[in-house]
């Protein structure tokens, strides 16, 4: 059992609060993604779990044990760093074995775990090399192998893919997903990349300015953002936001107290002729993206982005009628 509980974590740097009274429970074997823009406190939170950051107040428990004042080495965790933090003076083999030897595991056990973990990450051929002789992607694999070799129930990952180039990142993302599911550890994964978050997480905690705004499953976060920030941060293009009042004309009446409507680009049906229940929009830009077209248009004085079928290729300056799918309309405050 390696459930992680964060209770009222507060950490300040000078006057700025990196995390402002954050509480979060990460279930055993759950894959939790901490997502947010830089400076939102996600990395501070991860480091607090690792014990690398002294928190001002609050408690951290791992597997029911209060580890708030326990140094990292006694927390039973493994961590992958953004910079990989592969030791340059040790071979790949010694890097992976480092933690196992510190734990004083018997040599046979060390060997077994190193080899198993190297095999999983497909780096068996490089075991005798030094990190300087490896590419960035290979170093990253070493870092993951080193963490997975540890017999620990908690795996912490701090933006592990952000230093890889785009193509490699895509490959590694899929591979990580499989590896981590097989490993079955409680995983906390920090990223600022919403696609990564959506693709990997069992749940995503979206953070901004030191607080968690929403913690839900990927689909839920994507589909039912709690506010404008979450909707705008997740999804590409970001969710459209329109004044609720403007939709009364097409029969969409906001519940009392809500003055904003959020609707995603793929949730608008587009027509080239007037249509009841559709908003009139004038097209500004048409971007053909192969599978579909992304159209930027103006509804009244508000901008809106719409996905259309690839075949629909209107001229900029022409009109388009957009009909929101009623069950996809999200009312926000």
């Amino acid at each position: 059992m390696a459930e992680i509980q964060l209770n009222h974590i507060i950490k300040s740097y000078g006057k700025a609060r990196a995390t402002n009274d954050v509480s979060l429970t990460i279930k055993d074997k759950e894959f939790m993604v901490l997502l947010g823009p830089s400076g939102c406190g996600k990395t501070t939170l991860l480091r607090a779990i690792a014990g690398l950051e002294a928190i001002d107040s609050g408690t951290v428990t791992i597997g029911g044990r209060d580890v708030t004042n326990v140094p990292p080495r006694f927390r039973d965790i493994a961590m992958v760093f953004q910079s990989y933090a592969v030791f340059p003076h040790l071979t790949v083999w010694d890097n992976i074995a480092f933690g196992l030897r510190m734990k004083k595991l018997p040599d046979t056990e060390v060997k077994k775990r190193v080899e198993m973990s190297a095999e999983m990450l497909r780096i068996t051929d490089y075991l005798q090399r030094f990190p300087a002789q490896l590419s960035g992607g290979q170093r990253q694999r070493v870092a993951v192998a080193r963490a997975l070799a540890m017999p620990s129930g908690v795996l912490l990952m701090g933006e592990p893919l952000s230093n890889l180039d785009a193509l490699l990142r895509l490959d590694m993302r899929a591979e990580l997903k499989k590896l981590l599911r097989d490993a079955g550890a409680t995983t906390v994964y920090v990223t600022h990349d919403q696609v990564e978050a959506l693709s990997l997480g069992d749940r995503i905690a979206v953070m901004k300015q030191g607080v968690i705004l929403q913690c839900d499953s990927p689909l839920r976060v994507y589909d039912h953002p709690v506010d404008k920030f979450v909707g705008g941060f997740i999804g590409n293009p970001p969710m459209n936001f329109l004044r609720a009042a403007g939709l009364a004309a097409i029969g969409l009446i906001a519940p009392p107290g809500y003055d904003l409507v959020g609707i995603r680009a793929e949730n608008l049906d587009s027509f080239t002729s007037p249509m009841s229940g559709a908003l009139e929009a004038s097209i500004l830009v048409v971007e053909p993206l192969g599978s579909h077209n992304l159209i930027t248009a103006k509804v009244g004085d508000e901008f809106i982005k719409v996905n259309t079928r690839a075949e629909l290729m209107p001229e900029p300056g022409s009109k388009l009628w957009l009909k929101p799918m009623p069950d996809k309309v999200r009312w926000l405050k």
């Binding site: 014990g51 950051e53 002294a54 928190i55 001002d56 708030t68 004042n69 140094p71 990292p72």
Partner: peptide, 8 residues
């Protein structure tokens, strides 16, 4: 204020 690296 009592975690690993005390300010001392």
């Amino acid at each position: 204020m009592t975690t690993r690296r005390t300010n001392l």
